[in-house]
């Protein structure tokens, strides 16, 4: 499988990355280089093999459904690019 310039533009859009047009050709080459190299995985027989989820099996821990943290509004907002009156300020997203 190989990607085209249009694929690169589509992937960049999906990933929410502004890629300048003059980077697209280079990215086509780089991504195809990596994807072709990855193709060798097709040699491996994975028939009936389970996908790995964790190296050391133990039951996922459960905890009580209760509030254990909070009341730290100012800490949460401390690194916001824009905030006002205790709120995050974000670009308008609904007309």
């Amino acid at each position: 499988m190989s990607v085209t310039a249009d694929d690169v533009r589509r992937i960049a859009r999906l990933a929410r990355l502004a890629e300048p047009e003059d980077r697209v050709d280079a990215l086509v080459g780089e991504l195809n280089g990596i994807l072709n190299w990855i193709e060798q995985l097709n040699e491996v027989d994975v028939e009936g093999v389970q996908a790995m989820t964790t190296p050391v099996a133990f039951p996922l821990p459960m905890r009580k459904d209760e509030v254990t943290d909070g009341g730290i509004r100012d800490k949460v907002l401390a690194n916001a690019p824009k905030s006002d009156e205790g709120f995050f300020v974000v670009p308008k997203s609904v007309e």
Partner: peptide, 11 residues
Amino acid sequence: LRAQKVRTRIL
């Protein structure tokens, strides 16, 4: 999914 299966092989 294939890569995660290969990972099982490596383990």
